[in-house]
Amino acid sequence: MPVGLVVVSHSRALADAAVVLARGMLPGRELAVEVAAGDVDGGLGTDATAIAAAMTAADSGDGVVVLMDLGSAVLSAETALELVDDDVRERVVLSPAPLVEGLVGAAVTAAAGAARTQVAAEALRGLAPKQAHLSGGQAVGGG
């Protein structure tokens, strides 16, 4: 089974749209992407219990890479690690990649069957093409 992905955002709309964009790169390919976004009332916010549930749902044994937006999304994703079972926790990678670029890179790599360390590494390189393009074609390191 491919590595699963979790998208954590303050905004449900932002997370859903990012997933649509990433899935657009993968016509006809299977990929487990779970969204944990917004507060309990559907407003802006994050909920670590929802993130924990998403991590568990996205994991099919080969682990999960979590992409998140900023601020409390990061704190909530870390808190979620305290709420999941030990075996799931060992297979979760919290990615410091930018949400949209990282998700697209991770989705393509995960759908191709790569291991979670490779998926996480590809997410982290997500900004490189844009950086290279906008810096006049000079090579720019990822991360």
Binding site: D39, V40, G43, L44, G45, T46, D47, A48, T49, A50, G71, S72, L75, S76, T79, L83
Partner: peptide, 9 residues
């Protein structure tokens, strides 16, 4: 954790 929403949650 479930209901606060912001960083204080």
């Amino acid at each position: 954790i479930r209901t606060v929403g912001g960083a204080s949650g």
